[in-house]
Design a protein around this nucleic acid. Structure first.
Lengths: 211, 211
DNA sequence: GTGGAAAATGACCGAGTGGTCATGTTTGTC
DNA sequence: GACAAACATGACCACTCGGTCATTTTCCAC
C-alpha cells in the first residue's frame, strides 16, 4: 500500500499534517474541473479530460481521489452540504410553506446547473455520501413538519418522500429535446400542488422507511 | 458500402424480399436479449454480451442494426408503439379520469420493468423514435382533452406535459437505495393529485410547445 | 440436389478507459 | 540552503468497447 493519506472523500482524516499548498490548490482545481466536465459530458467525462481541464496530469487525480467514484462522491457531498446549509437557514422562516417551496427551488436549480442527478446515483454506495444525505433528510424533515403543522402540505407525505422527489422536476425537463432552461419550474409547480392538502387522494403505497 | 438492406430501424424498407427465416429468428432473439441486458446493466450493457445472450456472435448484431444506437432505437420504438396501442384502447373509456390514470400506470409500469428511462434519452435523436413519440403524444392529447372536459384535471396541463412527466414516478423511486418494487405507485399518486383542478396554483412557466 | 444469394462467423482493429508506478520536482522545516 | 517528505509527472498497463470484413455456412428457389 502506498501513502494515501490525502485520499479522503470529503472528510479530513484526523491528526495528519495539513496538505501542502500546491496540493490544496490542485484539489480545488480538480473538483471545479470535474464538476464542469461532468456537467458538460455527463458520467462519460473521462478522468484524463478532467485532469487536463484542471491543468494537471491524470496521475495527480488519483493521488487526490483513489478512484473516479471517490471524486464523484466528493462533488456530491459538497452539493449535499450546500443544500443542508440552505435547509438550515430556512428552518426559522415565518412562512413554512414558502420555506419548503424555496428549498425545493434551490435544490432543483442546483441540480439543473450542475447536472447532478446522475452523479447522485453514481455515488449511491459511498458511506460518506450516505451520511451527508441522512443529515440533509433530517433538515428536510424539520421543514416538512413545519409545513405540515401550518396546514400547507398533506399529512401523508414524509421527509424521505420530499428528498426522493427533489430531482423530479429536473428529470422531467430532461426528457424534453429542447427545453427552456427554467422549464423545471413548471413541473415543480405541478409537483408542489400534488403535495398540498386540497384534493389529496389516499396513497396506496406506504412511505419508504429508508431512503 | 456493403449491403445494409436489413438494417432498418423499426421500419421495413419497401419492396425487398422478406428476410430469411434464420435472420428473422435472430432479429427477435437479439431484441429480446438486448432488452433484458439493458434492463439488468443499464446503458453500459455491451453489444458482445447482448449477442452472447441471443446465442449469436457480435458481428451478427451489426448486420441487423447498423449501430448500437439503432438497436436501442428499435427497442424504444417497440415500447412507444405498445403505449400508443394502450392509449388508443383507453380513448373510448367511460371514465376519462380513470383512463388517464390507467395510461400513466401502464406507462410507469412498463418503464419500471424494462428500465427504459435511460434508453429513451439514448435514442433521443433518432427520427423514427421521434415519429413514434409524436404519434403517442397525439393519443395522450386525446386522453388529456377528455379528462379536462370531464373536469378531472386542471386546465393548464397539456399532452406534452403528461408525456414528459410520464417517467417521473420511476425516476423518483430510482433515487431510493432499496425501493419497494411498487413504490412508484406512491409517487404517481402524488403526481396525479398535482394534475387535479382542486388546489391547483398558477404555473409560472408556460407549457413547452415541442416535446 | 444444386447454385447463388443472404446471413453468420470469428478474428481483428483502433480508440479510449480507469488505474499504476518509478522517476523527477516542489514545498515546508530546521 | 540543505534535507526529507509530499507531491506531480508522463509513460505505461490491461482491458473493454463499438465496429469491420474476408471467409464460411445456411437457407431457399428452381
Amino acid at each position: 500500500m502506498t501513502d494515501r493519506s490525502t485520499c479522503y472523500p470529503g472528510v479530513v482524516t484526523t491528526s495528519v499534517r495539513p496538505p501542502r499548498a500546491d496540493a490544496a490548490r490542485n484539489r480545488e482545481a480538480l473538483l471545479a474541473a470535474a464538476e464542469a466536465e461532468f456537467a458538460e459530458r455527463g458520467i462519460a467525462a473521462s478522468v484524463a479530460d478532467i485532469a487536463r481541464r484542471a491543468g494537471v496530469v491524470k496521475g495527480t487525480v488519483f493521488r487526490h481521489f483513489a478512484t473516479k467514484e471517490d471524486l464523484i462522491a466528493a462533488i456530491v457531498i459538497g452539493h449535499i452540504a450546500t443544500l443542508s446549509d440552505e435547509a438550515r437557514k430556512l428552518l426559522g422562516a415565518s412562512d413554512p410553506e414558502a420555506a419548503l417551496r424555496e428549498f425545493l427551488t434551490v435544490a432543483a436549480d442546483q441540480r439543473h446547473q450542475h447536472n447532478l442527478t446522475f452523479l447522485q446515483t453514481a455515488s449511491a454506495g459511498n458511506t460518506a455520501v450516505l451520511a451527508a444525505r441522512d443529515e440533509l433528510i433530517g433538515y428536510i424533515g424539520q421543514l416538512v413538519d413545519a409545513a405540515r403543522a401550518a396546514g400547507a402540505i398533506r399529512a401523508d407525505v414524509t421527509a424521505i418522500d420530499v428528498f426522493l422527489m427533489m430531482c423530479a422536476p429536473i428529470h422531467i425537463m430532461e426528457n424534453s429535446s429542447d427545453p427552456s432552461p427554467s422549464l423545471w419550474q413548471r413541473y415543480l409547480g405541478i409537483l408542489f400542488d400534488g403535495l398540498r392538502p386540497e384534493g389529496a387522494s389516499p396513497l396506496t403505497q406506504p412511505a419508504p422507511s429508508k431512503p
